[in-house]
Design a protein around this nucleic acid. Sequence first.
RNA 1: CGGGACGUAGCGCAGCUUGGUAGCGCGCAGCGUUCGGGACGCUGAGGUCGCGGGUUCAAAUCCCGCCGUCCCGACCA
Length: 575
Amino acid sequence: MLTAMRASELFAHTLREPPGEEEAPSARLLVQGAFVRKVMAGVFTLLPLGLRVLRKVERIVREEMDAKGAQEIRMPAILPSDPWKKTGRWQAYAAENLMFTLRDRHDRELGLGPTHEEVVTPLVDADVSSYRNLPLNLYHIQWKYRDEARPRSGLIRAREFLMKDAYTFDRDLEGLRVSYGKMVEAYKAIFSRSGLDFRVVEADPGLIGGDVNHEFMAPADVGEDLFVHCTSCDYAANVEAAEAAPAEEVDRGDLAPLEDVPTPGRATIEAVADLLGVPQGEVLKALVYRVGQELVAVLLPGDREVSESKLARAFAPDEVEMLGKADFERHGLAKGYVGPQGLDGVTIVADPTIRAGRDWVAGANKPDAHATGVNLERDFTVDRWEDVAAVREGDRCPRCDEGTLRVGRSIEVGHTFQLGTRYSEPLDATFVDEDGTEKHFMMGCYGIGVSRIISAVVEQHRDEQGIAWPRAVAPYHVVVIPTNMDQEEVVSVAERLYAGLVVGGVEVVIDDRDERAGVKFTDAELIGYPVAVVVGKRGLEAGSLEVRLRATGEQREVSVEDAAAALPGLVAEAP
RNA sequence: CGGGACGUAGCGCAGCUUGGUAGCGCGCAGCGUUCGGGACGCUGAGGUCGCGGGUUCAAAUCCCGCCGUCCCGACCA
């Protein structure tokens, strides 16, 4: 990568005003600062400045992956459909319309790769036959394609995006855990070096599958993911996966009698609670779903919401579908008045939080009536306990005694999975173990949104003036600003400094455009060079230059003679 | 996919309610002045008003359809 550039030649036309069609701060700044241009929704051209930032991130990723013994390969962006059909994901992705598909001249179905398990697994199956070649960790950095239902926030949810994905292959679970641990370490190093504030959280595996998995979340207002974290211990989880703390059992002595009360037209929790003058948390919410062939009533306190993702996971692989109005009638259920007592032919699934309640108000299973004094064991039994309630701010921490949970918004910049044999079994990818038997690879997979990191960094490092890049991913480290191109001394001192920095290997831009000083200052702040050196008449009269640190706003004088020698040190001080 | 907003010069916008043949600022080109926080004057180039259809003597403006972009939601490694 060239280390120096003249602003007069740089293809970087900053915009005076932010683009009207972008809302997310990072998207606005990346366009305004001439890092990217949008081609269509979720698809971007990287301009010279943006490409340099991307390459910086890639380099950090490579260094940390290589340091953990991962080996870089490059798999294609276009893929055959067959392996995807074997793992069931061709259908799964097609159902979500996530895969861009195309056909070749032989009318063969191809796809643009949204991820690469189906390529790497056959590769390793063909090339690795013995446990002696394990463990193995292969990664690549490749453009990924997903026809997202809603591309969003510039590079944060793009349809074409650069991803680093790694795949580990081990003999057994123990080996997988070791490989996984190394990748988690590598990820922490990568995000730290990129200048991101991040948290490791427990997550929902989604379409990828597998069991243990973690997300690496960069807190940011525009983030799409909600995660909870404990105020006193290090527990953190995506809300889709967050566990509830075990409920405290309530004393069941001296229960209220079971009685019906008329509640005409009060089919919602809120209306019933209002009418009877009880808190919504004392009304038992019963949601009816169809799961496979059976009907399921899910019970939870009236002031809690069900977590659709936890629910889907609890019943996987069966599909969970909310019951429609017509279905209620067909099954003789009173919509809005369902309660668990005497409910025949319906499986009762309860969230453990209801253990903490008693004397519930619940539907009376006939229109316009509720029952009061509804109690567990005495009036109804639970067929299955499942943690399906969405956690919320203020809930007790599931891991420690002191903390409560806080909710934060964040950008998912990385995701790691212990896949086990989720892919090696359907693709029948095996090796021969020490005992002579054939076994399926224990796999892990590990993704980083390389292009997404750029947005996440900007979201976390910006102010009114523009971007303030952390040095590690800044497009250039230093901008030299001659304040006036008409003053010979100013220009010659700036040019000499520039030449000195180039020789010293400093990544530097000289803003030699015939622009007024103000234009150069605002551009430097918008683009976000960590260090700016101002060469102007004012300073030269005192024999000095002005060095400004973008992130802190700190400003100091450096003598003209020392500048070239001192700058590498000053750059190293920049955050 | 449901809801909402928007689409007029490279960029940011006005004009649309009440139809009469397109305007402002920035940017761009030339000349001159200016020059340490987005200078100024003069001159100039630049537009299928997103696309298609309809109403009308006449459509950026009214009506219908489509496309695109952004936001909220559903969905999503």
